[in-house]
């Protein structure tokens, strides 16, 4: 009984994944290759005055917003987590 439900659940999840994947590939094929900002502007009809170049980053991964601020805030959050974890330990 448990195994049947597990399989059924996984099958439904698998079908959902296939449906959404097909949907996203179709949407990508129609709209074309664009960055996030460009895709958004295009969707709502904004035509920016200057085209901003997309930074290449590492293997195509890049940080949105200011990199230095990102590193500072992320580091501060990690320090807060470590302090809270140390204090919450019995």
């Amino acid at each position: 009984m448990f195994k049947t439900n597990h399989k059924k659940g996984l099958m439904i999840f698998g079908v959902l994944i296939l449906v959404f994947l097909a949907l996203s590939i179709a949407a990508y094929a129609i709209s074309g290759n664009m960055g996030i900002e460009e895709r958004f502007n295009n969707a709502v009809g904004i035509h920016p005055d200057s085209e901003e170049g997309v930074p290449s980053g590492i293997f195509g991964f890049n940080i949105e917003g200011n990199l230095v601020s990102y590193v500072i805030i992320a580091s501060a959050l990690i320090i807060i987590c470590v302090v809270l974890y140390a204090r919450s330990k019995p």
Binding site: N33, I36, G57, F61, N62, A74, L77, C81, L84
Partner: peptide
Amino acid sequence: ITIAAMLTAASFAIFQVNMPLFGG
């Protein structure tokens, strides 16, 4: 509070990373 802080840090860190999929 600790779990909330960890979720905040993880979400913030991953939220800013633009992945090279479907253009970004």
